[in-house]
Design a protein around this nucleic acid. Structure first.
Lengths: 240, 240
DNA sequence: GTCTATACTGAGATAGAC
DNA sequence: GTCTATCTCAGTATAGAC
């Protein structure tokens, strides 16, 4: 996002050092309690330097989340090497691996949703500024769908639907105070079981008209994946 | 929420004066641009006085939203006086009247979602602090459902589902830049048409097992309405 | 382009006097 | 209940070192 490709190796190092230190401090002291000045000095950097790399505290979280996504893509790709998985297991791998990555960092997730109601904000989960993130994430789900036999129209909406579902799951995850968030895990399994059954049912003739209406509705409302559709990934490198 | 029932008439007046002035300033200058100092002086009050009534800027928006909900309940009750409406029309009245109220204030809505990722925050839409709001809102939808013939289990989850749907619609509404948010209106109509058809289909024997699983899932995950279930309202007074 | 040091501004929020 | 004074902190310079 900032200083991405054309930065010197040294700068990359400083940046990632500030980032990792910041995350440590966040985990130790909490998000609100940590000031930019603390983050900077904990990393042995000046305030100006911290702001040079990250224009705001939230931008640090965003950078963390970029890393999470890269790691997610890696893990899903690794899990899908096993070819004998059915759709439910493949989607399960996608959902659970995401939760695995985030398990200890639920508090960091709260920042992700902070600007969801502000279309213009660069860090809005639904806004323009995070389109690449969404598409990457949808690509991961598209990869998990694989070559599963599905009607074309369903296939077209599924990545976006799974992305939305996974955002909802993350929200549930944040609020889940059960031990080790077992409830979220059960919810994921239950939802996916249901989803797979629904996908099978969807061919039924009674449901055809409903399905047509649903698709028309999504199309008309622009809720389908934005142009520049997500692509299947084999391996997603974090730093190309 | 603050200084609600047991405040002196004079305090009530000061409070509502600060509130209405603040809303005017918000609409004129935008949410971010308006500082608490401006809001206070525009209302002829001191900064401390403003904070006495509203512990934060967001609390002002919350108070506004409380008023919106009261107005919503009033309008829905008024619309339902007409008894010849079918379910779709009654739900349509509930959804559209909400949008009518909020039409000019989409920017004020963004604050509602700001703390959705923070379970502990008193203003989180999903948190404990706003439970009463949710229940009031669900009551409105329950009222709109009326005595429509529905399976008991569906009836039990419908208010919560409609509340969640309406939150999603509000989010869409915020992002909708079509003229007068016509897209949101069309989305509402499309979704409700679909919903009513689904409610009819749900009795089908092929769908019975799915329906059972869905209910079990919602139950297990605690996504059903919280204890102290929403009650049907006839008239919802803003200040009892 | 990368980084430090330091100072300044603006604004949300609070304390305590009255 | 209301005010003034004050605090804290995010974020923005700015000026300069390398």
């Amino acid at each position: 996002m900032f200083n991405t490709p054309t930065a010197s190796p040294k700068a990359q190092l400083t940046r990632s050092h500030i980032l990792s230190t910041a995350l440590r401090v966040f985990r130790e002291r909490g998000l609100e309690a940590s000031t930019m000045r603390e983050l900077a000095s904990a990393a042995g950097a000046s305030l100006g330097s911290a702001y040079y790399y990250f224009p705001s505290k939230e931008a640090i979280i965003q950078a963390y989340y970029d890393d999470v996504q890269a790691e997610h893509a890696r893990r899903v790709a690794a899990a899908l090497v096993e070819t004998r998985l059915d759709l439910k297991d493949r989607l399960g791998a996608a959902f659970h691996s995401k939760l695995d990555i985030l398990q200890g960092d639920r508090k960091l997730l709260s920042a992700l949703f902070r600007y969801s109601g502000e279309p213009q904000h660069p860090l809005s989960v639904l806004g323009h500024g995070t389109r690449k993130n969404r598409q990457q994430s949808m690509s991961v789900f598209l990869t998990a769908i694989g070559d599963q036999r599905l009607p074309d129209d369903i296939r077209a909406i599924l990545p976006a639907a799974l992305w939305a579902l996974h955002m909802g799951i993350l929200l549930y995850f944040i609020y889940d105070d059960s031990p080790e968030q077992q409830r979220t895990r059960r919810l994921v399994d239950g939802v996916l079981t249901l989803l797979v059954r629904l996908l099978a049912l969807v061919r039924l003739s009674v449901l055809k008209p409903i399905r047509g209406s649903l698709l028309a509705l999504l199309q008309d409302s622009g809720l389908l994946p934005e142009p520049d559709s997500p692509q299947v990934l084999l391996i997603q490198e974090s730093q190309p």
